[in-house]
Amino acid sequence: MKVSKENAEHYVWGANCDGWRLVQQPGLSVIHEKMPGNTSEVRHYHEQSRQFFFILSGTATMEVNGEAILLNAHEGIEIAPTVPHQMFNHSAEDTEFLVISEPASRGDRVIL
């Protein structure tokens, strides 16, 4: 079945951020997310999930173990299990990105 933001399961998280579950299997999750300007995720880590964040549009700053890494459109970063991280959108524009998790990260997050 063809999947898109129009037919994927939608949810709202954080400060009016959006997510669309494009693939949701026990071993793999692919989520398209949108963060409005000047929003952020909570600092956390995953016990088992390895994640890859890929910026589709806009910019984001990923804080990984205390280091701020600027990500522009068409750039990404891999986060290993147990590594604390937090994403920020410091700009005034929306940022859209993919989050690919293996295995799926649902229920695997530890908030710091």
Rank of each mutant, 00 (worst) to 15 (best):
F54R: 04
S105T: 04
A73V: 03
G76K: 09
S57G: 13
Q48R: 14
L71D: 02
F54W: 13
E41K: 03
A68K: 14
G37P: 09
T59C: 14
P103C: 07
G19P: 06
G27Q: 15
A80W: 06
P81V: 04
A68S: 14
N38V: 02
I79M: 03
E93N: 15
W20C: 05
N38C: 08
S29K: 10
E78W: 12
A104S: 13
Y45K: 09
I55Y: 00
V42F: 13
G107A: 13
I31S: 02
F97E: 00
I31Q: 01
K5I: 12
Q86W: 02
E41S: 08
Q25F: 11
E9A: 10
L112E: 10
M35S: 07
I55L: 15
C17E: 01
L112F: 13
P84W: 00
V83Y: 07
N89W: 02
H85A: 11
S101R: 01
A15P: 00
Y11H: 09
K34D: 05
A68M: 14
A104H: 08
V23Y: 02
S40F: 05
Q25C: 11
V83S: 11
E9T: 13
I69D: 11
N65W: 08
G76L: 06
L28P: 00
I79S: 06
S57R: 15
C17P: 06
L22W: 07
R50F: 01
S105H: 14
D18R: 01
T82D: 06
L22S: 05
E67V: 06
A8I: 04
V23H: 00
C17N: 11
H10P: 01
Q51Y: 00
K5M: 14
